[in-house]
Design a protein around this nucleic acid. Sequence first.
DNA 1: GCCAACGTTGGC
DNA 2: GCCAACGTTGGC
Length: 150
Amino acid sequence: MAYWLVKTEPEVYSIEDLKKEKSTCWDCVRNYEARNNLVAMKKGDEVLVYHSNSEPSGVAGVAVVKKEAYPDPTQFVRAGEYFDPKATKEQPRWFSPDFAFRDAFPRVISIGELREVKALAEMALLRRGSRLSVMPVTAAEFRAITAMAK
DNA sequence: GCCAACGTTGGC
DNA sequence: GCCAACGTTGGC
């Protein structure tokens, strides 16, 4: 079982939205490294949901991989913002897993708090200038962050 | 295949 | 609103 972290702008899609919807297709990711991480997710993996461009920015809850990645439908929507003319049904370029809601933290664990924890210093999330929106997290990091939420 | 220009991300 | 980081695009 593996652990991950995904970023989302809560004004676009928040942990509360996931709680309401119960599950969602994690679509519209258009970065190859992030996509590779989405494809590597296995059913049952746990995913920290990070709110970016927010006040405060930070980890807001946990999702679980409900369905492993399949072709992201938004790449085929010709009129859509996420249409990719180079993607075909035979050779899709972008993939999305389904996530199910697991937990919304009683408070957001801010990036400032995360930076104070020495054990988390190596996280890709905290690297200066990191823009990666889907990244692996170690079991120890996952445990440390979920413990901070209590 | 190089690399400058440009666009986006996202913390602050 | 600023700006650093860095991915993408396109001319050559």
